[in-house]
Amino acid sequence: MSARALINVPKSARRGDVIEIKTLISHVMETGYRHSNTGENIPRDIVTSFSCKYNGEEIFAATLYPAIAANPFMTFHTTATESGTLAFTWEGDNGFAVTEEVKIEVG
């Protein structure tokens, strides 16, 4: 059981405030273009998609490709509209699936 994701969301915000959300997922992001010392191809193993849902409504989504470096760091802004839950989902090769939830208080 290892730490998989770092998420930075302000604990509280005023209604209408623009807030910055920062996320980092621990992932090797193996491109599939590298070879081992013995010449064998190292198979691709990347995160392929990321999405953020704010109280069930998707506010941010991204498709990731081999060009993205290891431990993808993604930040975006949103408007704080109501208190609730931000749900972050990462999916990728080899059945990779991580979901994290963070609460936010909007007053």
């Binding site: 730490a3 770092l6 998420i7 930075n8 920062k22 980092l24 621990s26 290891a70 760091f73």
Partner: peptide, 12 residues
């Protein structure tokens, strides 16, 4: 990247 613990992968 180093200044913010959230963006520093070493935090993991």
């Amino acid at each position: 990247m180093q200044d913010d613990d959230t963006s520093n992968p070493a935090t993991l």
